[in-house]
Design a protein around this nucleic acid. Structure first.
Lengths: 260, 260
DNA sequence: GGAATAGTGTCTCTTAGACACTATGCT
DNA sequence: AGCATAGTGTCTAAGAGACACTATTCC
């Protein structure tokens, strides 16, 4: 502690015992259900199984339980930078959407002392997940659907953090173009529909005729064109389908002129 | 630090030197412009002037500059609880809307060491602000309009925090019923219009005929009734105006079915 | 032809947006 | 009467929602 801090009552203003970043890594996994059919999509969360022993051979805290990847923040690093670094260390992936969504600082949440955790969520396109690998004190890495996650024995207060992460993902999926982080650069309307349906539950998304009419008019996506010709693919169907991409339009909505 | 933490490299995983809460206290001040006229409303922020000396007589850090109220978090307290406590200590007000919106943990933001700040915003209805008083190391308290705030010499990285707070207030005003925290329990449509206009800038809000037609249909406000009769007031006009209140409806919007 | 994906045609009903108009009450 | 606030009447055009219909391609 620097000398300027003398004069503050240490008993009253205790400094934290640790400062960490945790990351809820989400992806949407496509399960092929047959040729020329859009695959089923499921939202999955990456968790690691905590090792039995630390690197020093001591019994690890919360050993054997499933936990969010994360760890202590290094000197001269912010919580966000630590999240980026840890995601790279534990999965080998870079350049992803990472967002800070909360602070968990309740005394007693970690038995080792007053440990403050900064919670982030990250979105990984599924094709990037191939090269993931366990690291450091992580014994095992696995993907779970949300149903499965809440049946697990989770470490620390990670159940609460995951609950909150899910809430933020749903909110940001509705209010921002977060969906683009789950999709390839160029995609087909049924892929967008599939991603939205893994998280949102609005009737017009399910009715094809409504969705296919409305979606092309959304101001934040546009047809992929090449030499003046619209580009199409038959990735998922016998019939060719138009490719779309997200543009830079920044949507803004308000409850005061929404539909209800 | 508890014994379970031995084994972690202290040079690599430095613990923070301090953990604080800062609060951006907003209010909307009405300036009377004449009898039977709706008052002009202005968004204001409460700031305190940092004292020249600490309680111990030492020269204070960032002395003389204007700063957000806040302070160190006590043992076994969360950042949110500290914000509630500090707002009470510095203004004498309780039971307000307080929301955490960010963490400021960049190394070097405070010259005393690695001090992490949890930023909150709070909304105060203007009539509550009468009883405010300076406290602790605060020499002076004052309200500033946003124009004035950004001309001041602000302490630490508080300019950045205030910028962000303003962004969150605007967003939450559009997306939640935050406006109700600026209004009395029962209000008149022109009051709601005034509050929204201090922060938002949408054309239909300014056009009376559109606003007065649309607002009564919003699902989250309702007419105040008494004995089956709609309650009216002539608080602001010669003509009697209908009173409204917020109900418990929780609005939900999405960019995918909004208007553009 | 059959089956599946990817759309389009057309109708109805509601709402946004614009602008003129009425209602009330104080001076 | 004049003026200010607080609304309402009425028209037009755009969009939501529903359902039937077409288009393409593989088997």
């Amino acid at each position: 502690m620097s000398e300027d801090l003398v004069g503050y009552d240490v008993r009253k203003y205790r400094t934290p015992d640790g400062y960490t970043s945790d990351i809820a890594v989400f992806t949407i996994i496509s399960t092929e259900v047959g040729p020329y059919k859009p695959p089923e999509k499921t939202l999955k969360l990456m968790l690691i199984k905590r090792a039995e022993k630390t690197n020093e051979g001591e019994p690890n805290i919360e050993r054997g339980k499933w936990a969010l990847p994360g760890g202590f923040i290094k000197t001269e690093e912010t919580a966000y930078e630590a999240a980026v670094r840890e995601l790279r260390e534990e999965t080998g992936i870079e350049g992803l959407k990472i967002k800070h969504f909360g602070v968990y600082d309740k005394f007693g949440r970690d038995k080792r002392g007053w440990i403050i955790s900064n919670a982030h969520y990250a979105i990984v396109p599924e094709n990037e997940l191939v090269k993931r690998r366990a690291a450091d004190d992580a014994a095992e890495v696995a993907l779970f659907s949300m149903d499965e996650v809440f049946k697990l024995d989770l470490a620390f207060d990670h159940k609460e953090i995951i609950d909150d992460a899910l809430w933020f993902i749903r909110k940001d999926m509705s209010l921002t173009t977060l969906a683009k982080n789950f999709l390839p650069k160029e995609f087909v309307l049924s892929e967008l529909q599939g991603v939205l349906l893994t998280v949102m539950d609005e009737p017009w998304l399910k009715l094809d005729s409504q969705f296919f009419r409305k979606a092309p008019t959304l101001p934040f996506i546009e047809k992929v064109m090449k030499d003046g010709e619209p580009q199409k693919t038959n990735r998922w169907s016998k019939n060719k389908a138009q490719l779309y991409r997200f543009n830079d339009f920044d949507p803004y909505v308000s409850i005061y002129n929404a539909k209800y």
